[in-house]
Nucleic acid binder design. Structure first.
Length: 239
DNA sequence: GCGACAG
DNA sequence: ATCTTGTCGC
């Protein structure tokens, strides 16, 4: 869908790939990742989430746009789709990004920052979902994982704001960040066009009361609601 | 060979 | 991710 302010990929590539082709593409696109701050003034922040139907291969993707200051929901879009790629650790973006890009196509506000549910450069080829989305949209992104994919770390302190570094051999690939006192930390990494300290600053700011940033929380609520509705409609159609 | 493995 | 079971808190 073409619109005045639609956010659309600046890079196009096929999604109909096998496992080894996808890995080749990741290595190629990983060269484009920028690990420095290139943010304009951050007025709008996007959050993204995907949920799956239990039986079939159906999925629902949601994009939310929050006001960066008030953290209130400004705009959202939900799309239903079919998953064409299996879940393979390290190739997560090939499963989830096609519906996410579809969901973005009907969003009128161009976000200044996107917070992703998944890793950025904390990835075997330094190209997790957040980096992939960032490079395709040429937009600053933050990778925000609930569990780690790769790396070693010491447990951070138990207070909100405590952190430790996530290391892959000698590479600092991310930060293990405690967003709430005594709550399991989250794994923050550079997606694209942002530095690690700035990424952490935003994640902490976006998670004032909960473990995860407001962006992911709100997107999560939306997809679950839509999925429930979808299953109900499917059930009603059977009668 | 064995364990680890974003969602 | 989703499912399942149990527990706590509003």
């Amino acid at each position: 869908m073409k619109g005045v302010n639609c956010i659309e990929p600046v890079i196009q590539h096929s999604w109909d790939l096998n496992e080894s082709q996808a890995i080749v593409l990741q290595k190629e696109l990983a060269l484009k990742v920028i690990k420095e701050d290139q943010l304009k003034q951050v007025n709008y922040i996007a959050g993204v989430d995907v949920a799956y139907s239990k039986n079939s291969d159906r999925l629902v993707a949601a994009v939310v746009i929050l006001d960066a200051t008030t953290q209130k929901l400004i705009e959202s879009n939900v799309v239903e789709d079919i998953s064409n790629f299996p879940y393979i650790p390290g190739l997560f973006s090939f499963r989830e990004l096609p519906p996410v890009i579809k969901a973005f196509s009907k969003i009128s506000i161009t976000p200044d920052l996107i917070v992703c549910d998944g890793q950025g450069v904390a990835h075997p080829r330094r190209f997790g979902l957040a980096s992939h989305l960032g490079v395709l949209f040429n937009t600053p992104t933050i990778g925000c994982g609930k569990t780690k994919l790769l790396g070693d770390y010491e447990d951070p302190g138990i207070k909100r704001g405590d952190y430790s570094t996530l290391l892959d051999s000698n590479d600092e690939i991310g930060i293990v960040l405690r967003t709430q006192n005594n709550v399991k930390p989250i794994y923050v990494s550079i997606g694209h066009r942002i530095s690690l300290p700035t990424a952490c600053k935003w994640v902490l700011q976006l998670a004032p009361r909960f473990r995860l940033p407001e962006t992911t929380r709100q997107a999560d609520q939306l997809v679950k609601k839509s999925l429930t509705l979808l299953e109900k409609i499917k059930k009603d159609n059977k009668r």
